[in-house]
Structure formats: C-alpha cells, structure tokens
Write a protein that binds this DNA or RNA. Structure first.
Lengths: 331, 331
DNA sequence: TTGAAAGCGGTACCAC
DNA sequence: GTGGTACCGCTTTCAA
C-alpha cells in the first residue's frame, strides 16, 4: 500500500496525499478528511526510505558511546533515547569500545547513515591531546555534534559537562579539613573528565601548601576486584582516605581496606563517583558524587532541538556536581 | 557526490558503478579498479536512503527493551549491538517502558522503520496471559522476531531463554538440604521469567512435601531501599533464607537483615539473580544466579543470521543457568 | 486548493 | 562485461 494506492482510493493526486501526510495547511478540510479516512482504513504508513530520499533525512540521531553496559552510559543513553523519541527522532546506537581507532571508525560509520545529529557519550572522546580529533571536526561541520561530559575546543562541537574539577577540589578540601593527611586518588582513565578530576585534587593540595606524593595517584581498570588487587599489590602504601573517579574503584578500595583490616570510615574515608546503585549496595554505604547525567543529557537535547530548529544554542555548558554523603565520609 | 558523478568520472555507466559498490562478480578487474579509484578519490558513500528504497532494507534491526538503564538489559543491548554490527546491521533502539500500552506502541513504531528483524529484550514482553500479544504476532509474520529470555507460544516468535525454573528449583532444594525451614521468595514482577522462578520455588517445596506459606512470597520494586523498607514494614515475618529474582532485591534483603541485626549468612542466607556488579559490591558478597545473557544473545544472533540467510533456525532455545556461590550461602 | 511531473540516488532486469 | 532504463515511493515546484 503506497501513496499511489491511497491517492487512487481517495480520488485525489499523490501530491494531495503527501500534503495530508505532512500536515500541510493548504488542503481543504474536506479532502483532508477523506484522505485521512482512506489512510486509516488501509493502515497506511509512508515508506521511510522514500521519505528519507526526498527529504534527505530520516529524523534519526546517532548515539555513540564506548559501551552501554557501563551504568553511566546506560543511564545517559536511556535518557537520551526516551526524550529524543519524544521529539520524533530515532536513535541509532553504536558502541565504539574505548579504542582510539575503533572510536574513529564508529563515528565514520554512523555518519554514513545520514543521521541528523550525533551525540557522543563519555569524555573518552576528548582525548589527552586536548585537540578536537579530525574525525569529529569533520562531522561537526555537517551536522550538530554533542559531547556529553567532555570538552573539545572546536566551537562547532557542543559540549555539556559536569564540573568535575570543582567537585573533586571541594572534596579534597573537605578531607583536608577533616585532618586527612594522605589522600589516595584512584582513577581509571585519561579521559577529559578524569583529567579534570585529577586537576581538582592536585590544585587543592597545592592551594593548601601540601606537597603531592606521586604514589598517591593510582590507576586501575574500573573493576572492583581489579582495584582491590592492585591496591593489595602495593600494600606498603599508606593512606587515610580515597577519592575515586568511579564507584567501582571506590568499592575496590573498600574491599582492600577490609582485607587489610582497616575500618571504613573510622580509619579510611572513601568517596566514589557517579552515585550509582553500587554506592548504596555496599556497606558502609558509599559517599559518591552525583555527576548528574540526566541534567547533562537534558541540556544537550534542548540545545540540539534549538539547533535543528535553526536557532543558536550555547556551545559549552557546565553543570555543578553534587556530593551525596553517606557513611564512608562520616567524620 | 552521487553514483552519476562517479560514473561520469570513471567513464562508465551507473550500472557498473553499482556493480562495483555491491561487489558483483561480473565486472572486469580493470574497470573495477578504475571505479574504485574514483570512488576513493572522491570519498564516495552510497546514499543509504536510495539504497534502502531500492532494496527495501537498510540492514537494521530494532532492539526494544523496557529500559536500558537496567544492568541486565544494558548488558544484552551492548552484546547485541556489538555483534549485529559485526554482521553489518545497524541497531535502532527503543526503550518502551514497562507499561503495556507503551510496549505495544514501541513495537508498532519501530515496525514502521522497515527494520529487518526485531529483538525484544526482557521477558516482560511475555505477559501474564501466556498468549502471544497481537502486536507481536503481527510483526512476527513480517520479519524475524526474537525474544530474549521469555517464552511466547507463537512458533514464529523465536525465543531464547534461561532455565530459570530449574535454577530456582535447585537453589530451593539446596536450601532445604541445609535445613532451611522458611525460605522467602522475593520478586519484582509478573514477567514470564519471574513466574517461572516462582514456579521453581513452589514446585520444589511441593516435591519435598512442604506446605507453602503464602506470606513468604513477596513483591517489591527492584530497588534496594524499597525492598529493605518493604521488609521492615513486615518485620514480624520470620524467615531464614531469601531467594530473590534480582540482585537489587537480594541486597535490599541484606540491608533489612542488617537493620534488624540478623547476620548473613549465619542466620539468613541470601541468593540473588543476574550476577551483576552489585553482587560483588556488597558485603558479604552475594551468591547470585548467572542468567547468562551473553549466551542468550549469542544464540539469538546466530539464529537470526541463519534466518536472514534463508535457513531455518531453532524456534525455542533453553539455556542452563549457573549459580555463582559467594559468602551469603556459606553453609 | 489541486494536479502533473521532475527529481532524490540507488538497484536490477534486459539487451547487446 | 557493460550500458540503457524502468522502477522504488515520496517531496516539492510550477501551473492551472
């Protein structure tokens, strides 16, 4: 059942049917009603490909993230999908993995799908160089590109990010006020976000005239056991508090504390990041920074819709984080 | 830059260009090389819409799940996406929510996108009636439909599911052997999977001649705090072990135990489901059933590719679960 | 307000 | 092997 069939049955031309489908104002109410009725009766759905061909768009946006199995990204994708659909946009999902070359490929692949916009989830797309990767720059000159929780200098890539620097700065300061002398900083990546967090830690120590001990900045993959074991391998390292860039890392640290018989929070304070379900599943429950993904995603969608509507939108937006305190920072 | 431009530059017809693009065998190596070179130089990409129009397919599969923010579904979607892409298929994602009407709408919407196949993630699509919903039946007569971890009787809907019945039956039996007298069954839904789990529990008790106490079958949303609080509201209920259909519920039970001062596993044993990160984040670490999502997804993809290749595939496939024992069942 | 017809960018059948 | 051409189903301009 195509537009010709409907036109024939309704006794009008395909142009008129098209107008009705697209809700054009210049169709008389009468003919509109007739066409609508015929469409209804025959359960007609316009062919999306033909539509795409004519319009040059299928109303879809590409979402690329390293891995949806990660809770943070899953939350972001969930929110984005739900709301984009509300605006009539489909979501094509690509999980790119964390590998540099795979990331480039994913973006290049998805670009070929004639998406109306691209949303990159995760600051991993802002690599260590601080420069905008060429593959992102290329696509940004064609369609709106958004980066969720990352910063890329190119003005055409719209960035929405959490103020991770300030969040960690504040936490560090709070620990210092609580007389903590050796704060361990646990991170799992070199992403933009992770680097900002580290900077917050370093700057705060500096501001308080405290010399940074390089041993207190450690990396591990975001896995509870891996983190615990990594710490155990360095068990001669002493620390009285932990700031982790992911809840998984923080809990790994708590497991380690349990292994060596240190009590949390009495002897070691721990702070995680993302305020995931993990943070309330453990005991004692973990204080964790709420990085407010939904807010970031909402801002991105608002800006995107503004852009697609032909209006300007803020290019770089910063959102304040919020530390949710629980028992691991009970001091 | 379209196929006409390439044809002109290469000095051939569009038919030949099309053949090269589609890797047809009947093109001489020489002309093929010329065309390929021109395409390369101009960075030519065939228009997906035109291609879709001609072929009636854009090589995409629809993935519908209630909510990707859920760890189980996120894992499934992640696996499906990665592997479908390996076969050259795009994924269009729809999060339908758990609402019956929303589910129907999501499926109807996605059908219009001319997807080549539909994958439903989560046994929530197999509703309590046990019958195949009409909207699923309709689409199943057009394209391959897969249900991950659910059972629908219609032979055209391909089901891949975990043997949740047996898993819970076995666990229940094990608890009985450990002299547990009052096993609490905690569930969060009426999905097919949840019903099979309950059946495993009930049948096992029956097989051992134990009368079921209706009070010991409880429902709660899959949230740690909600579950804890629900149990606290019924704190006069006594039980010595818990089987939960989700890790979140299980941990809620552990939190409750902590509140009322019961020790796990000494006084209460707890078993969760899905073997998520939550299970190792808590302490003591939670024994949990590995429902083997990846295996289910792999089987679905294998069958799907078989079907799309014109070959038959098994319609209903059952996968054995595996209980991962940790400290909460240390008896 | 309506219709005719020219694209949109491919695929694939049919000749040669 | 290669080229010509009739679709695929819709949008949109131009006339009427």
């Amino acid at each position: 059942m195509n537009i010709y069939d409907i036109a024939k049955l309704a006794g009008v031309s395909i142009a008129t049917v098209s107008r009705v489908v697209n809700d054009s104002p210049k169709v008389s109410e009468k003919t509109k009603a007739v066409v609508l009725k015929v469409m209804e009766e025959n359960n007609y759905t316009p062919n999306v490909f033909a539509r795409g061909l004519g319009l040059g768009s299928m109303k879809s946006v590409g979402i690329v993230c390293p891995d949806v199995a990660d809770a943070y990204m899953a939350k972001a994708v969930s929110y984005l999908e739900k709301n984009l659909r509300g605006y009539g946009y489909d979501c094509i999902l690509y999980c790119s993995s964390y590998d540099e070359e795979d990331k480039r490929q994913a973006v290049e692949m998805i670009l070929k799908k004639q998406i109306d916009a691209l949303i990159l989830v995760g600051s991993i797309y802002a690599n260590i160089s601080g420069k905008t990767p060429d593959y992102i720059r290329d696509i940004a000159s064609d369609i709106p590109v958004f980066l969720i929780n990352g910063y890329l200098p190119d003005p055409r890539v719209n960035c929405v990010l959490a103020d991770d620097f300030q969040a960690v700065y504040d936490i560090t300061e709070e620990l210092l006020f609580a007389e903590k002398k050796r704060i361990l900083f646990l991170s799992n990546s070199q992403s933009y976000s992770a680097r900002r967090k580290l900077q917050g830690y370093l700057d705060c120590l500096k501001a308080h005239g405290i010399e940074t001990d390089g041993d207190l900045v450690l990396y591990s993959e975001n896995s509870i056991y891996a983190t615990r074991d990594m710490l155990f391998r360095r068990r001669n390292l002493s620390f009285d508090s932990v700031i982790a860039t992911e809840d998984g890392l923080a809990i790994g640290a708590m497991k380690y504390a349990a292994v060596i018989g240190m009590r949390v929070p009495e002897e070691i304070n721990v702070i995680g990041y993302n305020n995931s379900e993990l943070a309330i599943g453990c005991s004692p429950e973990l204080s964790s920074v709420d990085s407010r993904v939904e807010v970031l995603c909402k801002m991105a969608i608002d800006s995107l819709m503004s852009l697609l509507g032909g209006n300007p939108a803020p290019q770089k937006q910063l959102v304040k984080c919020h530390l949710v305190k629980r028992l691991t920072t009970d001091f």
